[in-house]
Amino acid sequence: MEITIISGKGGTGKTSITAALVSLLKNIVAVDADVDASNLHLVMSPKDYREEVYVSGFTACIDYDICISCGVCESYCRFDAIHYKQERYEILETSCDGCKLCSRACPQNAITMTPNDKSRWFEGKIAQGTMFHARLAPGEENSGRLVQIIRDEAKKKAKKQAYSHIIIDGPPGIACPTISSITGVDKVLIVTEPSKSAFHDLQRVWELTQQFSIPAFVIINKYDLNLSLSQEINDWCTSHKIQVLGKLPFDKDFVRAMIECKSIIEYNPDSKSSKILRTASTELMHE
């Protein structure tokens, strides 16, 4: 079974809850799909690393010895990445999408494409099995494809080791990396909190899961910060036939556990939060 933990809004507790779920399981593959701000590895401390290069895309590069400043490239660029500056055309690297059209259109063949190869992905051993995570180089693109790659690797690993579960810590938001981290999974767990913004984001991210027809479950984190809003979220879930797997209190142990690089289950196994997460995990993993 493949399960992804997402939230829409950032900072609701995805990674802390993923870490707790992972530490309750055995023989699994854990994947951190938040490739531009990964954190799960800080808790799971993977060992015996394998490191691979990820080419995220290409950036256009003008050879000024050949360029005649005709401006054809600028007229074709739809990403506003080519500008006439100081008597020559320049590529704005942060805007270049790597589509290669300028290079193809250039009558002088003055534009080449250079690979963006600073991103990496990693595989390592953890107590519960194997973990995959990645580091998208600053400003690089195609985070969705990187998510796809580590998910494919995770599936291969799970098959090879006969592991039955893959647990994926998803990114915030609802666009490409989130879409890549939920397509084809069996279940999605949405972590929310009782704030107007998190509730709004929950509704949008749930709508996304529905576009892909994936069964969604909810955990309300820090529910006691606003009891009436927690109730409202709970009612909304009921009316949309979404099972609420648990309501976690605001608990500073989550931060204390994080500082010791442990999951809440390892840090304080008998706490109320750990108990709630154990029950939620059993429900979630139920076939």
């Binding site: 531009d36 693109e141 985070s143 938001g173």
Partner: peptide, 14 residues
């Protein structure tokens, strides 16, 4: 700004 460091973040901070 949006979270993360990829294209949405870059599109904003640039």
């Amino acid at each position: 700004s949006p979270p993360g460091i990829s294209c949405p973040f870059i599109a904003t901070v640039t």
